[in-house]
Nucleic acid binder design. Structure first.
Length: 306
DNA sequence: TTGTGTTTTATTGCCTCC
DNA sequence: GGAGGCAATAAAACACAA
């Protein structure tokens, strides 16, 4: 590989000499297939120190005009190799070829080099650098598209989080109401084994568990994350007046097996699962067969909060 | 004019493919 | 093993504000 570099460096250093001496400037472009170069005699552009801007002074024209000035030739070729920018015409020609195909086959490289009066290696380098620039721009565009997509998704997510918080607050509020209502009604009834039949106890337990299932169902809805579950359309699940409202048990559709199933699940949950009530105490699990609210460590909300 | 930032040309080293 | 591509980088050329 090192050989490749050395050979190229030598060829560049010597190529201008060969080109200048063996070919007329126009022949370089007349041989090409690009009409845009037919009139161009500009090969190399130099910065004009006096003007401060790049001038299109033709290196070859100057040689044409002063063929006998070997001193200038010697001066030029004795200069350390400097970078020379391609002319706008050359760049335009290369750009058009790049647009046609950004890969450079050997034959095409040779032909382009001939057309432009450049070393094939220079054409290859130009394509290589051009591909790098194209890639950079492409990456920038991709980045912008991804950023826009991210912003859109984040806005959606933030909206969902807000909606979730609203629903959570609503559920807690309704739960609180239910607990308060339940506590205020319980002492009045003073249920005793003597005054309440076994059948009535069973009914109350079933109703309580039904409410528990509804609460779980609500929680599952929140877990699902589906937008249709978050649009509030089902928020009346726990509303009084709803047909499934807990204290209006409709057990007509319950079989005896189902009743047994509910009653088997009447074991009170551990105390830590009960939210602290404002007065500092926990609701008594034994007072209510089932807890209607969300446990303190409800993983549903942990999930949504993360 | 000069300092500074950007663009362009070219090199180097590494990697892959044939 | 040679050819060619790519990433990283150097350095010249260029643009532009102060």
């Amino acid at each position: 590989m090192a050989a490749r570099r050395v050979v190229y460096a030598a060829s560049v250093a010597g190529s201008n000499s060969n080109t200048v001496l063996l070919q007329s400037p126009n022949s370089l472009f007349l041989s090409g297939s690009s009409p845009s170069f037919l009139g161009s005699s500009s090969m190399v552009s130099f910065k004009d120190g006096n003007l401060g801007k790049r001038s299109e002074r033709s290196f070859f024209c100057s040689f044409d005009q002063e063929d006998n000035e070997d001193d200038e030739l010697d001066e030029y070729f004795q200069q350390p190799e400097k970078k020379r920018r391609l002319t706008p015409d050359q760049v335009q020609f290369l750009e058009r070829n790049f647009e046609a195909d950004n890969k450079l086959e050997p034959e095409r490289k040779i032909q382009l080099a001939k057309d432009l009066g450049l070393q094939p290696r220079q054409v290859a380098i130009w394509f290589q650098n051009r591909r790098a620039r194209w890639k950079t721009k492409h990456l920038e565009k991709d980045y912008e598209a991804l950023q826009a997509s991210y912003n859109s998704l984040k806005a959606d997510y933030d909206g969902l989080v807000k909606e979730k918080d609203k629903l959570k607050a609503k559920v807690l509020h309704l739960t609180d109401e239910l607990l308060t209502k339940n506590q205020s009604e319980a002492p009045l009834q003073e249920l005793t084994a003597d005054s309440v039949s076994e059948d009535e106890v069973s009914k109350i337990s079933i109703a309580a568990c039904k409410q528990d299932d509804l609460t779980s169902a609500k929680s599952d809805e929140l877990d699902s994350g589906s937008p249709c579950h978050l649009d509030g359309s089902h928020s009346s699940l726990l509303e009084p007046g709803d047909s499934s409202y807990v204290f209006e048990p409709d057990q007509s559709d319950l079989s005896q097996d189902e009743e047994d199933h509910f009653c088997k699940n009447l074991l009170p949950p551990p105390a830590y699962l009960y939210p602290k009530i404002d007065d500092g105490g926990y609701p008594d699990p034994s007072a209510n067969s089932c807890y209607f609210g969300f446990p303190v460590e409800d993983h549903t909300f942990e999930f949504w909060s993360n």
